[in-house]
Design a protein around this nucleic acid. Structure first.
Lengths: 247, 247
DNA sequence: CGCTCGGTTGACTCGGGTCAAGGCCGGTGG
DNA sequence: CCACCGGCCTTGACCCGAGTCAACCGAGCG
């Protein structure tokens, strides 16, 4: 039968891994999900994966790299509303048949897979568990947005940065991208961090410095290490439940 | 009892009105939706409509009154993540089969209807358009969360308050609860406004004062009037597209 | 009648924004 | 080979929007 460690398409493993985290999928459902991709595209940094207002005929899944969703204010300021990691669906607009409501852009060289909507419909017909898994991904994404909202509304700069680092560490871990338990690639600029957290670039820098002095984070050359996660998590009251499916 | 929030008409109209705003429903679908409620409950201020972590067997729909969803920080601070108006679904956790992720509490005397999940499943089987409408409601709710995130991340106090007032005016209008184009009931305290907008009560007060001086808002006795909506909207670059379904 | 809750105001503080300059690359062109 | 340039990070000086603390007022209510 199907060996779950051998993906049918290159890159399908990030996607399968993600689905398996939110739902227990039958072997048949896994096999179906594995055949989902119609195309995989290479996207350089700054390339748009999804465009606001455009109705796509395919669901975009990030397979490798790093991306974000954002909104522009007329004033020119950009607010990042979500980071998208390998395995994540870029935009859930397809669920309600609406076009995307936000732009999604690559923050690092990335790979994006497409799942044609009509093909997805057939797959979901055969394997309804796949739809359940997708809906759970959407629910988690909503949770993450709300948690970011809590950060901006009720945490100070140090807690915001710490909390985001904890979240990214946790999610990168799920994606299998954390080395030796505390190190992962973080291909963001400090300015981009600030655009997500509602902080100026300068203040992000000061905050990262102070985490460095506290020996809670070492961030150099797009590689970050969090040597003392328990202390970092305590500092910002990080509670990863919101990133998991509640049973 | 002169309960000003109690509707004169049967409760289903707020719900039908909401669904009709996001989808064109056939007469049959409307008839089905009308028979959805299994119970309607009266909830006084501060009563919980949904509790974090509890899996309900019914979808809760606010029929009259005013409510909010929120999250507590261990530090004690409460962050309101959404306001719930008549016609709104209180929590979308049922879509993914998860328990609610947040508490929902009444901010004014309210009426809450229940739709049993198994009954909803039958209805959706018969009239798939109802599911589409519900998914669109969920998408709009996600948009609203993101817009609040933008407020906290990128707007100052005056713009935040103005933007929220514009949004509430718009949504109350959809719910048919705006009188003479610019006046509606706003049964919130300034402290609650602050908990949503990430501002201290004192500063909310100062900000409302300054809107008053600018003659952009008159707010007394839970009744608010926005005499110059174009100017108010211009002040905060309010763009209601995010509250509508994109076609 | 006093109590509590919500709104209001003033004085003071401080976290984080802004401005400006400099350093460290890696890439590019002469 | 070097000069130059544009990102990105870093630091210091200064400033301001918003938080905090504290007091007072008026209305509703047990």
């Amino acid at each position: 039968m199907n060996d779950r460690t051998a993906p049918a398409a290159p890159g399908a493993d990030a996607w399968l891994r993600r689905l398996s985290h939110v739902s227990v999928l039958s072997a048949a459902a896994q096999a179906t999900a594995q055949r989902a991709f119609s195309a995989i595209r290479r996207a350089p940094t700054r390339d748009h994966l999804v465009r606001d207002g455009i109705r796509e005929s395919a669901v975009k899944v990030l397979i490798a790299g790093f991306a974000c969703r954002y909104k522009y204010l007329p004033a020119g300021r950009r607010q990042i509303t979500a980071f998208i990691l390998p395995g994540d669906i870029c935009d859930f607009g397809f669920l309600s048949g609406s076009p995307a409501a936000q732009d999604v852009v690559a923050l690092a060289p990335s790979l994006v897979a497409s799942i044609e909507l009509d093909r997805l419909a057939v797959m979901v017909e055969e394997q309804p568990d796949i739809m359940t898994a997708i809906l759970r991904c959407a629910a988690i994404e909503q949770s993450a947005t709300q948690e970011l909202l809590v950060s901006l509304g009720a945490r100070n700069a140090l807690q915001r940065v710490a909390h985001l680092l904890c979240e990214l560490h946790f999610r990168m871990g799920l994606a299998g991208l954390v080395r030796s338990g505390d190190t992962f690639e973080l291909p963001l600029t400090q300015a981009e961090l600030g655009e997500a957290l509602g902080l100026s670039t300068v203040h992000v820098n000061r905050t990262v410095q102070s985490l460095r002095k506290m020996e809670l984070a070492v961030w150099r050359d797009r590689l970050i290490t969090l040597p003392d996660l328990p202390r970092l998590a305590a500092l910002c009251a990080f509670e990863p439940a919101y990133l998991k499916v509640q049973e």
